[in-house]
């Protein structure tokens, strides 16, 4: 599904190097968790995967189903099945949530050569997905994310993910800001999407999320590099011991 090879990247306009040789492979159907201290480059990695041009890849490659995506625009990556649930979803005043969802869905379908979804079908789909995630229909009448609470924004990201049915889901701290019940709802939503053809890259600071979404692999990103990989027990170890031990070993 995803192969990140010796990825080096820096901030485009000022040159600070943030990723310093990331190597990571995610297989079809795998749920990979990425953990790591604040500022280690987790969000940066997720933005680069999604194609944000604030960052410049200076070395290495990102292969998605065997092909490099470095030259692809963010919308092309999305249409090919990549999705990023933002750590901080943006508020976009004036853009109606429903208009946005429909535009995005149909743009992707069009890019893939599929027929556009008609409004009644679309409405049905949104209603069903929103119902499962316990998202109030009133919320969807507002402009995109505007005035949504922190947790509502995170839920709205997962709603988008459920509607767009991506192949590679990157979730950047989706758990932060969610209350206990919402965490369970979102995790159930994610688990329902798990399939042999769909992979997940779950960025989180807490074991709690991984109790619900049990990962196949766990990776520690530190100062722009993966310094340790393991199975779900690695997350438990981090929960108990913190990063000190592992950082010490890596040094």
């Amino acid at each position: 599904m995803l192969e990140i090879k010796n990825l080096h990247a820096r901030v485009a306009d000022e040159g600070t190097e943030i990723l310093k040789g990331v190597d990571l492979t995610v297989k079809d159907g795998e749920v990979a968790a990425i953990m790591g201290p604040n500022g280690s480059g987790k969000s940066t990695l997720s933005y680069i995967l999604a194609g944000r041009d604030d960052y410049e890849v200076t070395e290495g490659d990102i292969l998605y189903n065997g092909e490099s995506i470095l030259e692809m625009e963010p919308d092309e990556r999305a249409a090919s099945g990549l999705f990023l649930a933002f750590q901080y979803p943006l508020e976009i005043p004036g853009v109606a949530t429903m208009t946005f969802l429909k535009t995005a869905l149909n743009a992707q379908r069009k890019a893939r050569g599929e027929a556009e979804l008609m409004t009644p079908d679309f409405m049905r789909k949104v209603k069903a997905a929103a119902g499962e995630l316990k998202i109030d229909a009133e919320m969807l009448k507002r402009p995109l994310n505007v005035g949504f609470s922190g947790g509502e924004k995170k839920r709205a990201e997962i709603l988008q993910m459920a509607l767009l049915e991506p192949k590679l889901c990157i979730m950047d701290e989706t758990d932060s800001g969610l209350d206990i019940d919402a965490l369970k709802i979102v995790a159930d939503g994610v688990n329902a999407l798990r399939s042999p053809e769909r992979s997940f890259l779950v960025i989180t600071h807490y074991q709690r999320l991984l109790d619900y979404i049990v990962p196949d692999t766990v990776h520690v990103l530190y100062k722009g590099r993966i310094i340790k990989s393991g199975d779900k027990d690695l997350a438990l170890q981090l929960e108990n011991e913190g990063y000190g031990q592992i950082i010490g070993e890596a040094a």
Binding site: P74, D75, A78, A104
Partner: peptide, 24 residues
């Protein structure tokens, strides 16, 4: 640019995303 990236990351091509933002 952040708004534009957000829309594009959902599969909306740049010209369409820009039009949406201008209209908004």
């Amino acid at each position: 640019a952040d708004h534009l990236f957000y829309l594009m990351s959902r599969g909306i091509p740049a010209p369409q995303a820009k039009a949406l933002l201008v209209k908004a």
